[in-house]
């Protein structure tokens, strides 16, 4: 960086923008009511199923005692029948090698699909990442300019 830091930083910024995020890695759990049962679908952010992950269901009435334990199938799916008289609030943890998520289910509303938060479009992800990357590059410019004084 002694020779031409501006050129190096600009090249780095361009390279980072070109490799802008397209794929994800975190886990996402989506649930919906199917008749009286709750259907869980767990996947990585890119859609790859979180297969054979351990599922633990806790009721709001006894949040530290597992109500049901099980495992997702090859498609990352799992279903259970909640006892609505016991509680209307449920926590579901999906876990495989430390990857997974915990979702809170509130069975009081009419809508079927509840948990879609964290699901960004590719454009949103690119823009969000670009903003953060630009922050880093801006910081780099700031310190590079201090070096030249």
């Amino acid at each position: 960086m002694h020779g031409n830091p501006m050129k190096i930083l600009l090249s780095s910024a361009a390279l980072l923008m070109l490799t802008a995020p397209v794929f994800g890695h975190g886990a996402r759990v989506v649930w919906e009511m199917q008749d009286d049962s709750v259907h869980i679908s767990a996947s990585f952010d890119d859609g790859q199923p979180l297969a054979r992950a351990q599922v633990t269901v806790f009721s709001g009435a006894a949040p530290s005692v597992p109500y049901i334990v099980g495992m997702t199938d090859e498609n990352g799916e799992f279903s259970f029948l909640p006892d609505k008289e016991k509680s209307l609030n449920w926590d579901v943890q999906v876990r495989s090698a430390g990857h997974g998520d915990i979702v809170n289910l509130s069975l009081t509303e009419e809508s079927t699909v509840k948990n879609e938060q964290g699901k960004f479009t590719t454009l949103q992800i690119v823009l969000m990442s670009a903003c953060v990357v630009w922050g880093f590059i801006g910081t780099a410019f700031f310190f590079a300019s201090r070096r030249r004084r």
Partner: peptide, 18 residues
């Protein structure tokens, strides 16, 4: 510190390459 900022950006981005 300037170099660390660029590398932090690279670290931030590569985790999206799945």
């Amino acid at each position: 510190v300037s170099r660390a900022s660029v590398m932090a950006a690279a670290f931030f981005v590569v985790s999206w390459i799945h």
